[in-house]
Structure formats: C-alpha cells, structure tokens
C-alpha cells in the first residue's frame, strides 16, 4: 500500500470541498482497501465519508430512494424493498458474503471495480488499470469475461449484481459535486470500454454518489434475480438475469430484463422485452424471446458457452415468475 493522506468528512459539503483530483472516498472499504493493498488503486488522498447523512431507505408513490451510504445488508432485508422490489433484495443477497454486505455501501457497490484477474495483478498488462499497456485477458484466461459491449481494449465484466437489477428498473443515481447536484440514469452512467476502458462511468473527479432513485413500478413486485455461478455463494456471476414481469391474465403486458456477468456494463435487453410483450406467458414465448438476448455477443475461445448460458438463465428466470 502506498502512503496516502487520510481524513474524515463530517458533511457532504465538507467532503466535496476537501476532495482533489486524486481522491478516493471511503465508504465500506470492501473494494477500495483491497485494491489499495494490491496497489491497483493508489489515491493520494482518502476521505472517509461514513459520517455523511446519506443513510436512508424511503419508499413512496414516486418510488424508492436509497441513500448511497446505506449498507447492502440493510437494503436487502428492508421489508418494503423485499415486497415491492424483490429483484433488488435478491440481487443484494446473491452478492458477496453476509460480512461484506454488512460493511459495503450501496453507492460503493455501483462503483466496484471489475474482478478481472489481470486488472488486480499489477504486474500484468491491463488497459483499464494502465491505459495503453494492453489486455492480457483477450489471449489469456477469460472464461468469466464479457461477451457484450467488449472492445479490443477490454473484455472485463462489470461485477455488480445490484446494478443489473437497478438498470432493469430504470433507476438513476443522484450525484453531487462542488458544481451542484445532477441526476443520471444508471444505464447511461456506465460506459462501454471502447478505447478508454479506464473510464468506467460518468462520475467526475471529486463527484460523489449521494442517492439511488428507483421509479415506482407496481408490477416490480413480480420480479426476480437469478445468478448462475461456479459455487453456491460468495462468487461472481457467470451469467445473471434481473427480470420483472407484468402478467395480465395469461399474457405478458410488460417486461423489464437486464443481464449481468456477461457485459462490460449492466446490460438491458430491450429486444427481449419487446419480444415478450403482448405474448402468452409460456415457455415457448420465453425461449423465443431469449434468443434475442445473444444479438451482438462477441465470444472468445474461453467463453463460447456464454450465449447459451445467458439464454438459459433468462428462460429459467422467466419461468420462475410465471408460465
């Protein structure tokens, strides 16, 4: 770990005022501290923001608002989240371990870095960590890597389960900087790697995620998060699906679909949603719609199984909501 300056902020204004170009905000620390030990992240300044008043879960007619410092475990167990947005609760419970969920913040979850092993190994080339150094994964071990949104520079997946659920629900993030607040839809917040994989999102230097806003969606009560992985718990997704279904009688009136573990960012699938809408809620419909999920997928020799797995994940998730 490199030496760094550490301070604790009392208020949001205080935190923003102290932040410089090379500042990292410390919330739960479950990603930051880990990556600082590995010298993958080497901020000159770390500002502890845990005292900031950004811990709350509020539900109302306009939807759900979650403070960025709220802990994952608290949101996962929140009765109204469980009842009205089971996909969020399930995505959180499928993440990490209970100990990590007790520490890790909601905002930090959205900003967690990829689990690509080459990104975490400072002796390896990695365009995301060190722009222009190359990508060791493309010719290396990449079984878990992305097939959607990849580029010749980077094939790393975005690791968050929560973000997949939120993108499916059209959530936004509230951001604040010394220039003031702004709201960005989460789907636009994340960037595809292109030739600049080091730029993962729209956050500006010193800017802080303050709140997550999920619009009201009554039929999100019929939603689920299915995560497929190499062990039952404490492992990242090979493929995951966040699915909400609006069923009217025997047919699908609306659908929200996003997938994880397969994209360089949480991946919304409007083509699948469209293929489901207005069709009978049957296995045949689900299988046909899931075919649309693989449009544009680009596989590597080690992850050729992913398109099949994504289709199957979607069908299984849809069947669990109703057929």
């Amino acid at each position: 770990m490199k030496d760094f300056d550490f301070r604790a902020a009392e208020t949001t204004e205080d935190a923003l005022a102290q932040a410089g170009a090379d500042t990292a905000y410390l919330a739960g620390g479950t990603t930051l501290v880990d990556l600082m030990k590995l010298q993958v992240m080497t901020p000159r300044q770390v500002i502890d923001i845990n005292a900031l008043p950004l811990r709350s879960v509020r539900t109302g007619d306009d939807g759900l608002r979650i403070g960025a410092l709220e802990r994952m475990a608290a949101v996962a167990g929140h009765p109204q989240v469980r009842e009205w947005y089971p996909v969020i609760s399930q995505a959180l419970l499928a993440s990490a371990s209970q100990q990590i969920r007790n520490m890790a913040s909601m905002g930090g979850n959205l900003l967690q870095r990829t689990r690509c092993g080459y990104f975490r190994d400072v002796s390896a080339p990695c365009n995301k960590r060190e722009p222009g150094s190359g990508c060791a994964a493309i010719d290396g071990v990449h079984r878990a890597h992305a097939v959607l949104g990849t580029s010749d520079s980077c094939v790393a997946t975005h690791p968050s389960d929560l973000a997949v659920a939120l993108v499916a629900l059209d959530a936004s993030v509230e951001l604040r900087s010394t220039d003031g607040p702004r709201t960005v839809p989460l789907a636009d917040f994340y960037r595809e790697p292109g030739s600049t994989p080091e730029r993962e999102n729209e956050l500006r230097p010193g800017e802080l995620v303050t709140e997550i806003v999920v619009p009201a969606l009554p039929w999100a009560a019929r939603s689920t998060y299915l995560k497929i992985r190499d062990r039952s718990s404490y492992e990242f997704a090979l493929s995951s699906a966040a699915v909400a279904l609006d069923l009217k009688g025997d047919s699908v009136a609306g659908a929200r679909i996003a997938v994880g573990g397969t994209g360089t960012k949480p991946w919304r699938l409007p083509a699948v949603e469209e293929a489901l809408t207005g069709r009978p809620a049957t296995r045949e419909t689900y299988e046909q719609a899931a075919e649309r999920a693989t449009e544009g997928m680009r596989t590597l020799p080690g992850n050729r199984f992913k398109p099949t797995l994504v289709r199957r994940t979607l069908v299984r998730a849809l069947l669990s909501l109703g057929d």
Partner: peptide, 23 residues
C-alpha cells in the same frame, strides 16, 4: 489456472474456488 505466458489467473482465494457451506 495459468495463461500461456505462465501467469496464474486465479492465485487468490477470490479466484481459486473452494466450496462454501452452501455447496
């Protein structure tokens, strides 16, 4: 697992999977 350059791809307990209780 090693890549063709001999670099280990999962030499830590996050990447080298062993069963958890749920398994």
């Amino acid at each position: 697992h090693f890549d063709s350059a001999g670099r280990p791809a999962n030499a830590d307990l996050a990447g080298y999977l062993i069963p958890v209780n749920a398994d």
